[in-house]
Design a protein around this nucleic acid. Structure first.
Lengths: 325, 325
DNA sequence: TACGCCCGCGTAAACGTTTACCATGCTTGT
DNA sequence: ACAAGCATGGTAAACGTTTACGCGGGCGTA
C-alpha cells in the first residue's frame, strides 16, 4: 500500500483493484485521512478555486449575482474566494495580488476603476478573467452584463409621455461602463424627445447610498426641483427615497421616481416603485460558466454575454403637477 | 542568488542585505515572478484562508455579516472562501469536506442542521470552528450571535399592551437555536402575560421567503385570524408582507406586524415596519476575530460572544380593531 | 598580526501529492 | 510447460516554498 496506490484510489486517475481500493478507503476512514488539496494543487498546477472580486457584496445586485456564481461554480467543482473591494482601487489591486499568489484558476471581477494595471498582470499570468457588469480598459476579457440602454430609453420615453419636462438623474460614476451607459442613454433619449437636461439635473453619485441621499437633497433644494428622478442603481435609490421621505415629499404626487435595479421591496412599497430589472441569476451563471468553460475547454477566449434589462412599471411615476384630490 | 535568498527577501523571515533584496525584487518584477502561496501553504501548513459557510448569502442578515467577516479577515491577512449551503445539510457536508481538504485555517459556519457529524470531523482535524447565529450539538466551539430574548419579550409585551389577544408567530425551523429561541421566548412571554397561543397561531417556517408567504396565507384564512403577526426573520417577513399586500389586508389597520431582523427598507415603507435589529457588523467582526485570535494566539478556545438585539419600534403596530377613520 | 565571532548567504531536506517508469506475478496462447 | 503480455502496485522525481545547518569572510579585539 504505497502512496501511489492511495493517490490512485482517491483520484481514480489509474485503475486500482476493487479490494485494494476498499482497504485504502477503510483505513483512511479509520485514521481520518483526507487528501491534501494544497499538495494536489501544487503538483497539478490547479486549485479548483475561482476569485470573485466585487465592489460591495451588500449591494443586492452583487449579492444576487454572487449567489448565482457560487451555485454555478459549485456545480462545476470549483470553490469561490470572495473579495470585497469597497470600490477602493487600492484594495482591489491587493486582492488581485493575493489571489494570483494563491494560484486561483480564474477570476470574475467588477473593477472599481476603469483602468487597472494589475489586471493586465493577471492576464499576463495566464489566469482567465471575466468582467462582471463593468469592464476595465486594456484587458482583453469577456464581459457579462445587462444592456440597460433599451430599458433606460423606454423609461425616459415613458416619463416624457407622462408630461415630465424636468427630469433628473442620479448617475453612477462615469468611470464605470454601466454608469456611463445609463447616464448616456438617459441624456440621448431626453435630447431625442426634446427634454432639456440642464447640468443641475444631473448629479453624479458613486453607486452608494450616501451619494443618493446627497443627490436627492440637492435636487430638492433646487429653485425649480425636478418632477421626476431616476436613480442609476438600487443603493442610490434607497438613499434618494430615504431623503425624499425625510423631506416630506410625497411620491408619486410631488415627485415621480424610478430606479435602475429592481428590489424585492419595491413591490411592497407605497407606492410600488418602477424599476429596471436585470437578470441577476443569468448574469452570475453566465460569468461562472464563461470561466469554467475556458478553463476546461482550454480553447480561445469566450464571447461576451450581454443580456437585456427590463423596465418594470409600477406606481411611482405619474403625470407631473397632479396633486392628490 | 539562491532560492533561499529569494524566499528570505520576500518573507523577511531572516535578514537579507539591502542590496541583494533590491536585486531580487528588481529581477522578480522583470520576470513577473510572484511567490506561490500554494507551495508556501504546503510547507507552512497554513493557508491564510478562512471558510465562511452560510445557508444563504441572499438573506440580508448573512449578507451584512459576510461583509463584516470579509473586512475583518482581510484586515488580519486572511482570505475568505464562501460557501452557500441553501439550508441543505448535504451540501453543507460536502462543503466542509472540500474546505477541510483545501486546508483552510478556520471556519465560520451557520449550520443548516442541529447536528452535524461532519463538523465533528472538522474539530477532530484541529481546525478552529466558530458558530454564527446557530450552533450544532456535539461540537465544542464558541458561538457568535445576538440574543433575541430581551427584544422578543419586549415586543410581545408591547403588543399585549396595545391590546392584542390573538397574536401569531411565523417561526423559524426548530432545529436552529435562533429559531427555537425566538419561538420559545415569544410563547413564554405570551403565557406570562396571559395571552393564549393556540397551535394555529404558530406556523413553522424555514427562514425562507416562500414559507413566510404560505404562513401568512394560512393565518389570513383562519376563521379568527390574528390581529398581530410576528415573523421570525427578514425573509419570512418579506414573504408575509407580500402575501398581506396581495390579500389586501392593510397594515397596521387590519393587522399589526413586526419582524425579527431589521431592513434598510422598513424605514421607507408605509407604514414603516417595527423590527428587532441585530448588530450585524459587530457579529461578523466578532466571528472573524474569534477565529484569527485562536489561530494566532494558539491559546484555548475563545469564549462565545452574545450581543443584544434591539427592538426598533415604528408604525406597523397599533391597537387591534382600530379601523381607519 | 592573529584569533574568534557574527552576519549573510547557499545547500539540501521536507511538506503531500501525481505520475512516468519499473518490477512482480498472473493469465493466456501455443 | 513455457514465453509473452498485461494488470497491478511500488519507487522516485517533481511541484515551489521554508528553514536548519554550514561555510566563508569581514570586523573587533588583544
Amino acid at each position: 500500500m504505497s502512496v501511489a496506490t492511495v493517490s490512485r484510489s482517491f483520484s481514480g486517475s489509474q485503475p486500482v483493484s476493487a479490494g485494494v481500493r476498499e482497504r485504502v478507503h477503510e483505513v483512511s476512514r479509520r485514521l481520518g485521512y483526507r487528501p491534501n488539496a494544497v499538495a494536489r494543487s501544487l503538483r497539478m498546477d490547479a486549485t479548483k478555486t475561482l476569485g470573485l472580486v466585487i465592489p460591495n457584496i451588500t449591494n443586492p445586485f452583487f449579492t444576487e449575482v454572487a449567489r448565482a456564481v457560487e451555485a454555478a461554480a459549485w456545480r462545476d467543482g470549483y470553490s469561490l474566494m470572495l473579495g470585497n473591494t469597497d470600490e477602493d482601487p487600492k484594495k482591489e489591486e491587493r486582492y488581485l495580488d493575493v489571489l494570483l499568489g494563491k494560484q486561483i484558476d480564474g477570476i470574475i471581477i467588477s473593477p472599481a476603476s476603469a483602468t487597472s494595471p494589475h489586471l493586465a498582470e493577471v492576464e499576463a499570468a495566464g489566469v482567465p478573467v471575466v468582467f462582471l457588469d463593468r469592464a476595465a480598459a486594456g484587458v482583453d476579457a469577456p464581459v457579462v452584463r445587462a444592456d440597460g440602454r433599451l430599458a433606460v430609453g423606454a423609461l425616459v420615453e415613458y416619463l416624457a409621455n407622462l408630461g415630465h419636462e424636468r427630469m433628473a438623474i442620479i448617475s453612477g460614476p462615469p468611470e464605470t461602463v454601466s454608469g456611463r451607459e445609463r447616464l448616456g442613454t438617459f441624456l440621448e433619449e431626453a435630447e431625442r424627445l426634446g427634454v432639456e437636461m440642464p447640468p443641475e439635473m444631473v448629479r453624479a453619485g458613486d453607486f452608494r447610498q450616501k451619494s443618493g441621499e446627497r443627490a436627492m437633497r440637492e435636487l430638492l433644494a433646487l429653485e425649480r426641483p425636478p418632477t421626476a428622478v431616476f436613480a442609476a442603481n438600487n443603493l442610490m435609490a434607497l438613499g434618494a427615497l430615504t431623503e425624499a421621505k425625510k423631506a416630506g415629499v410625497a411620491i408619486p404626487d410631488d415627485l415621480s421616481f424610478a430606479s435602475f435595479d429592481d428590489s424585492r421591496w419595491f413591490e411592497l412599497m407605497t407606492p410600488s416603485i418602477s424599476a429596471i430589472s436585470q437578470p441577476l441569476e443569468e448574469l452570475g451563471e453566465a460569468a461562472a460558466r464563461l470561466l469554467t468553460e475556458s478553463l476546461e475547454g482550454g480553447g480561445g477566449k469566450p464571447e461576451s454575454v450581454i443580456l437585456d434589462a427590463e423596465l418594470v412599471l409600477r406606481d411611482s411615476c405619474v403625470e407631473p403637477g397632479k396633486k392628490p384630490s
